[in-house]
Simulated scan of single mutants.
Amino acid sequence: MISAYLSHSNLSISESTVAGQLAELDAYIESYTPDAIWSYQIPELGEGGSCSLFGHLQEAPFLLAQYVSQNSDSEHNLSRLQAIAEYVKTATGVDWFGIYQAREADGLQQLLKLAYYGAPSRPLFPITDAFAATSNNIQTFLSEKARVINNIPDYVANGGEYYTCDPKVQAEVCLPLLDAQGRCLGIIDAEAFEKECFDEYKLAVLVAACLRAIEYLPR
């Protein structure tokens, strides 16, 4: 399982380190049951919806129940996904983390944010080639490969396109959520306010999060 994930996502890190983090994560999930989050604040979007206006929040919260059936199974799954998010926070100290699932939303396929911690951020990312031009989330989903950017200012200075939500973010990792057949069903996104944040240990934590999160995506 670990080897197949690392190969598919094009990551070169220690399988044993990932296995250790997976055991730690499983113990954490067993010991901690947070509430599922069914609504959250989101930023106002810029012109054309292409860019969040950081620091300006919409008055009405985003209602996840408009996109995911609110039942006991979903309650259980979202609770577990929130526990995974909290474990990532505890284990890595990164400043933002989110778990997204590809779902039909508002008439098109989008990445829907199911669980997260950190500053408010946009809830939906359209899965389109146009949006992939700047969004690491969409590039990761479409390519099914990891994207690790440990120095965003250098990346942009060298011609890389980058979707900015929080200008304090200096490093970002996006990883695919792959099922047992190798299909990509979503992504995770981790962000840090310091450059060169994502070492092998933190990447191993994030891979462990992917290996468990895929089991709790709501139907």
Rank of each mutant, 00 (worst) to 15 (best):
A146C: 09
D154S: 15
A146S: 15
Q58M: 15
A19D: 06
I152V: 14
N10C: 11
I187R: 04
G49Q: 10
S69G: 08
I13Q: 05
L175N: 05
A19S: 15
D95R: 13
L63V: 07
D35N: 15
G160N: 03
C197A: 14
G49W: 08
K168W: 02
T92Q: 05
D26I: 12
I29G: 09
I13D: 05
A192R: 00
A130N: 14
G46P: 06
C165R: 03
Y201R: 11
P61W: 07
C197D: 05
S69E: 12
V205T: 06
W96P: 00
E194I: 14
L57F: 00
T134L: 07
Q170F: 01
G93L: 08
A119E: 12
C174W: 00
E15Q: 15
L142C: 09
A209Y: 01
Y116K: 12
Y201V: 04
L45S: 10
A83T: 11
C210M: 03
C210V: 00
A85H: 09
A146F: 11
R219Q: 12
D35E: 15
C51G: 06
S74C: 08
E172N: 12
S7M: 11
E47W: 09
E47T: 14
A85G: 13
S16K: 13
L22I: 00
A85E: 01
A190M: 03
V169E: 02
A133W: 01
T17H: 11
G160I: 04
L22Q: 14
G46Y: 08
I127T: 07
L206S: 00
A209H: 06
A208F: 04
A157E: 07
T33R: 14
L178K: 08
Q21V: 00
G49F: 08
I42L: 04
D26F: 07
R80G: 02
L53R: 10
